[in-house]
Amino acid sequence: MYIRDIAQKIVNLMMEVIDNRNINIMDCEGFILASGEPNRIATYHKGADDVIKSGKAIEIFPEDIGQFPGAKQGVNLPINIEGKIIGVVGVFGHPDEVRMVARLVKNSVELALEQYLISEQVNLVKDLKNQLIRKLIFNPIIESEEEILCLSKVAHVDLKIKRCAVVIKLDNFTNEEIYESMNAMGQIEKNLYEKNLITKNDFFGVINHYFIIFKAIDDSKRICYRNSIQYIFEDQQCYHVKIGFGNSYKDLYGYKKSFNEAVELISISKKEPLDIKDFETQSKYLLHKIQTDVSEPLIKELYALILDENNKVPEWFYKTLEALFEHNLNLNETAGHLFVHKNTLVYRVKKIEQITGLSINNFYHGVLLYCLYAFINKHNSGG
């Protein structure tokens, strides 16, 4: 929003308070920026020009109007922000009648403009940090290092601090629902600040459906921090999110590494946040990493064995594998999760082994079965 629009809003609001007595706000050249009399906007006001030049209030009495082209009777006062005159506010009326009102209006205008300027500064810093994050995670560091260091200095970000990427992905918005997703991002930011989950050594930005925090945190505090973030989103179930935590790094190249790790964890997570420092998560991450062009031809052969007459994976097959891996191959827990008798589960496991030729109790076969499960998951989600 431009300063002229802000000034006009202030004029409209203030005029309601002082019985619609006209108010003008003038710029540093003495031209009317906003007014209760629209036809006077962008016209010269000699009284305001004199205030700018002298730094003092100018009162215009009815008999003095001829000395002040473009002005009417009233009181004109300098608008001071941080010790500098940035404009003039004028209130129409006989000076003896409006002197006190004009002072109150001046104070209100200064306060409103101060708040606006603070808000603009905050938005500017946010934009700079967003640019910084984009360059750190998308641009080749070797080509952008000078620009990144310049941006970090202007945005007051010390890139030498050891940080990890915490990536929060909104899952319940499409690419078209940009306005709603930005509102959700704003609410996420507010919640994180209220719970002190973003501190002065952290910096964050929003890119597409990702809310990215580069977090300065000791490894010993990661579990507590992870639980706190999880609690926020469990408490507010309207946001469906996936959360990934990358490793902590101390150099410029580490920001991209940590971000990529966090995003990769999001791609394999279900509900709970996944942290690369967690042993179980590390195993999932490593298994996910081996699903490359090298392993795919082998997995495709297994995949072809399990397709039914409609060329689809039977639901029982996929659900059984999913539950088995979620419960660390514990048959009792898996049967309970699937709401089936243990004997039914044993029958299904034997059928899986018969179709694939892989034994669930053989570690190496188990790795292949997990890769098969991940391949099915990727295939079904269109990845």
Rank of each mutant, 00 (worst) to 15 (best):
I18N: 05
R21G: 06
R21S: 10
N24R: 07
I25R: 00
M26P: 08
M26I: 12
D27Q: 00
D27G: 06
C28K: 11
E29M: 05
G30M: 02
G30T: 00
I32K: 01
I32C: 06
S35E: 08
I41N: 11
A42K: 13
H45M: 13
G47A: 15
D50Q: 08
D50N: 11
I52P: 03
K53F: 00
K53N: 04
S54E: 00
A57R: 02
A57N: 06
I60Q: 01
F61K: 14
F61T: 00
F61E: 04
E63Q: 13
I65L: 05
Q67G: 02
Q67L: 13
P69V: 09
G70S: 06
G70K: 00
A71C: 13
A71D: 08
A71Q: 07
Q73P: 02
G74D: 05
G74A: 02
N76D: 00
P78F: 08
I79F: 11
N80S: 09
N80Y: 14
E82R: 15
K84F: 05
I85A: 07
I85N: 07
I86Y: 07
V88E: 03
V88C: 06
V88D: 01
G90A: 04
G90Q: 04
G90W: 01
V91F: 06
H94L: 07
H94Y: 04
P95G: 00
D96H: 08
E97Y: 06
V98D: 05
R99Y: 12
R99V: 03
M100Y: 10
M100Q: 09
N107V: 09
N107G: 08
V109Q: 05
V109S: 07
E110Q: 15
L111I: 11
A112F: 10
L113T: 11
E114M: 09
L117T: 10
S119E: 15
S119I: 14
N123A: 14
L124D: 07
V125K: 14
V125S: 10
D127V: 01
L128N: 05
L128E: 12
K129A: 00
